Amino acid sequence: MSALESLTPRSLPEPRAMLRLIKPVTWFPPIWAYLCGSVSAGVPLAAHWPLVLLGMVLAGPIVCGMSQAANDWCDRHVDAVNEPDRPIPSGRIPGRWGLWIALAMTVLSLAVGWLLGPWGFGATIVGVLAAWAYSAEPIRLKRSGWWGPGLVGLSYEGLPWFTGAAVLLQGAPSFQTVMIALLYALGAHGIMTLNDFKALEGDRLHGVRSLPVVLGPEVAAKIACTVMGLAQLLVVSLLAIWGKPWHALAVLALLGGQVLAMRVLFRDPRGKAPWYNGTGVVMYVTGMMIAAFALRGLA
């Protein structure tokens, strides 16, 4: 790029910046949760692979991508402080293009959700509303360190899990499936709290009352880990009660590994939060799939 080009404001978004806007790295949790839900339904996956694949694409690249675009648009002033190199504050997605992309992906989400039948479409509506409620004024639940991470946990883990099971069953999932999905969604509140550590300065400046801002990184890390641990202990207990002791033991062993990782996290919560996302969180989501296979056995 020449010096003249670098000084000329863009009129169209940069293609690579558009991809970064919808953050492919964030697609894994809802994709994984939808797959867990599909497994837990207890129906042959090979016979329903188009619904499984379409649901995973909807949960990840489309709905989650839309939520990321909406969040970046609504957070453009915060990102100008925290991460000025992001697509919108850096100008690589100029003007109101960030908003147009988020709105277009909202329409796409609803169109693809319609293809999954009434249960899939209903869940898509809930997911889209949750995405905008999290980021957009006047609701902007992101401002709360309790409601914001809770909503994201439900949207990223609980709702896709429920949807994956409901779409394949063409009906409401079992009580056991709903309970396990809900517990893992509640536990994800802790994961989302740790994710807030990277935005401390901008959140303070713009009035986002995340738990790291309100309570400090040390206390917030302990709360996050407690929430994750208690949710998984309840999962272990339920699996044991429902006659799945080996699955319960496997989830408990993974929780033990997380406890060891948490001890490292507590030494430097802010610095070690990204490290924990690559260790403890991986064990957390592995336990999700083990629990899904336990539910499949019950089905």
Rank of each mutant, 00 (worst) to 15 (best):
M1W: 07
S90T: 08
K244Q: 15
W49V: 08
F293H: 13
V251G: 03
L35H: 02
L103P: 00
S174F: 01
Y134T: 03
M105L: 14
Q176G: 01
V152D: 02
G37L: 09
R204N: 06
N71P: 00
V208A: 15
S155R: 09
A185Q: 03
L99G: 01
M289G: 14
A130S: 14
T163V: 02
R263S: 10
T124D: 08
M179P: 00
P160Q: 13
S144V: 07
G202K: 13
L211I: 08
S155G: 12
G98Y: 05
Q170I: 05
Y134R: 07
V78C: 11
A166H: 09
T177G: 15
T193Q: 14
R296V: 04
W100D: 01
L249M: 15
L234Q: 06
Q258T: 03
T226I: 08
L249Q: 13
F175P: 02
V112S: 05
I31H: 02
Q258H: 07
N71S: 10
A172T: 09
V167C: 11
R140N: 06
A41P: 02
A3S: 11
A17H: 04
A181Y: 03
L234I: 11
I125H: 09
L19V: 14
L4Y: 10
Y134M: 08
A123V: 01
F266K: 06
I241W: 09
G164I: 02
R263G: 09
E218A: 15
L234P: 00
L154Q: 11
V236L: 11
S11K: 13
L265M: 04
A3C: 06
E157T: 15
P29A: 14
G148N: 05
P89N: 06
L51S: 13
I180M: 11
L116V: 06
G171Q: 14
V63D: 00
M262V: 07
E5W: 01
W246I: 12
H189A: 09
K23W: 03
G187H: 10
E137K: 15
I22D: 01
L265S: 03
L58D: 00
W32Y: 13
R16E: 13
A224R: 06
A123Q: 04
L4K: 13
W132N: 07
R209V: 05
G122S: 13
M105H: 01
T177W: 03
W246S: 11
G153V: 08
L215A: 15
A69T: 07
L183D: 00
A131M: 05
V235M: 09
V285Y: 13
A102P: 02
I101R: 01
A261V: 10
A273R: 07
R204M: 12
V78E: 11
R92G: 04
M56V: 02
L7G: 02
S174E: 04
I101F: 08
A185P: 00
A133K: 05
A80Y: 01
A46H: 15
G229R: 08
L254F: 00
P87Q: 08
L19D: 10
V282Q: 06
L194I: 11
A292W: 03
S237H: 10
V39F: 04
S90A: 14
S210D: 05
W147T: 09
I88Q: 06
P44F: 11
M262Y: 02
P212Y: 10
A111H: 05
G164K: 14
L53P: 01
A70W: 04
F162D: 05
F197Q: 14
M1Q: 09
